[in-house]
Each structure stands twice: as C-alpha cells, then as structure tokens.
C-alpha cells in the first residue's frame, strides 16, 4: 500500500471520489432545493441563489447534480459489480475445468466480443422499459468479457504453480483449492479491471442517455442532465458544462485510482 500512498495523484483522485460519494450519500443535506421543484425562472445563469444556475424547467442544477451523483455513481458501481461477478465466475470455471466447458465459455466470450456492443445495448434497452436498474444490468451484462478472459488467463497461470499441485497431492477438494488458493491470486488484477470498467460504465450510461435510453425523468443522472442540456447548449451552457465536467472529473479520478492500483500491484 505504501507505493500507492506515494502516488500523490492517485491519492488526490481517491479523495475527490470519496468526497463525491459522501455528497451523494447525504444528498438531501447538501442540496439546497428539491431536485424536482419546478421554479419560477427557467434557464437562469449561475448566481448566489442557484450556484450552477437553473435548467429548462427552472429546477436548480446544483441540487440535481447532487442527486444525480447518487444515480451515476451507483450505476457505475452496480454495473461493474455485475460484470465483474459474471466475468469472474465464468473465467474461473473455464480456467479451472478446462476442456469442453472452457471452449464453450470462451467461444461465447468471442461471440459477445464480436458484437458492436452498442447495438446489443440499444436493442435490449428497447425491449425492457428503460429505468435505472435495467441500465445497470444491461451495461453489466455487456461488459464482462474482458474480466472473464483476464481471470481465465490468471487461473491458468496460477494452476501451474507448485503449491496448487501440492494441494492436489494432499487431497484438497476442487472447490477448496479454487477458493483458498486460486481466488486470492486472481483478485488483484480484477480490482484494477473493475475500476476501469466503472469509468466505462459511467460513460456508457451517459451515452445511452444521449440516445434517450438512460435513466428516466424526473430522476436525474449526470447523463440525462447532459442530454437535457443538448437543446440549450447555446442559451444555457452551464446546463451542459456542470454534468459534463462532473462526468469528466469522476471518470478521470477513477482512472487515476486504477492506475495507482495497477502500479501498486506491480503489473
């Protein structure tokens, strides 16, 4: 952990993320207005009354950004948890069992990778009603392939190590070997992949919102705030600037943390 702490950039990024998480968690405390409150004046420039101005409904952009943080961050977290979970399980199974199971799973990975995934997301999103949970699940289910490959490769290399063979020799059961010996070795790279995946998920959510398929009104996410801002880019640039910069900052911080972790793990 020492090396990570030495990486000042990564530490700074982590503190920014922590701050965002706190703000998101205690949103009602930080937001000066109800994010759904339709006000008297629409498209008002930033002022002391409205730090980030108001949107086309006269709603307070700052309050919406604060509540939006909840959704955007949790979309990132949940989507990544799903993709890591799926990728992890499939990766371990194929790496450990090998043979037919492995080739079936890896062929499936190949198929999923050959899709222009945006199509799959669009199509699935059109089947299900667009809401936050579906957005999370869909992003999760279309982004697990990298993790699966990574985990499988890792399992394959760990499997060859002498202590695993030793465990086999002394008669340890398959699941026991898998969980006690292989799992801990695989976790570190997966965490790194997960952080990067989270950045990707936040961006994907915003792109889905751009196409009108993201989180639904009146809830706010940074992605749909950006989408709403599109029509008013020239009259109310703050509507685009605030969520755009928040997405940028968050994703940037996540990357920096991921990079710090990567160096820490020494890959």
């Amino acid at each position: 952990m020492k090396k990570f702490r030495r990486n000042k950039l990564a530490v700074a990024a982590l503190s920014v993320l922590a701050l965002m998480a706190v703000v998101a968690l205690f949103a009602p405390f930080f937001a000066p207005y109800d994010p759904g409150d339709i006000g008297k004046t629409a498209l008002e420039a930033p002022s002391m009354l409205h730090f980030f101005g108001t949107d086309d409904f006269g709603r307070d952009v700052f309050s919406r950004a604060v509540y939006g943080a909840r959704i955007s961050l949790s979309v990132g977290l949940v989507a990544v948890s799903i993709s890591v979970l799926v990728g992890f399980v499939l990766g371990i199974i194929s790496g450990y069992f090998g043979g037919l199971t492995e080739s079936l799973i890896m062929r499936f990975v190949d198929i999923m990778l050959s899709f222009p995934s945006i199509f799959l997301i669009l199509a699935v999103q059109a089947i299900l009603t667009p809401n936050i949970y579906n957005v999370m699940v869909i992003i999760g289910l279309t982004s697990w392939m990298g993790v699966a490959r990574l985990v499988r490769a890792e399992v394959l290399s760990v499997k060859e190590r002498p202590y695993i063979e030793a465990a086999h020799v002394i008669g340890a059961s398959g699941p026991r070997i898998m969980f006690r010996h292989i799992l801990p070795n695989v976790i570190a790279p997966v965490i790194v992949a997960g952080t990067l995946g989270m950045a990707g998920a936040i961006l994907t959510e915003s792109a889905l919102s751009f196409l009108g398929l993201g989180v639904q009104p009146p809830l706010s996410s940074w992605g749909n705030m950006l989408q709403d801002s599109q029509a008013y880019l020239r009259d109310a640039p703050w509507m685009a600037l605030i969520p755009g910069l928040l997405i940028l900052l968050t994703v940037l911080c996540i990357y920096l943390v991921g990079e710090g972790l990567r160096e820490e793990i020494g890959r």
């Binding site: 792109a207 940028l248 994703v251």
Partner: peptide
Amino acid sequence: GMSIPSFW
C-alpha cells in the same frame, strides 16, 4: 481523452 463523453 478517455473521460470525455464523445457527444459532448
């Protein structure tokens, strides 16, 4: 570059 939403 990696963090900017493309449409924005």
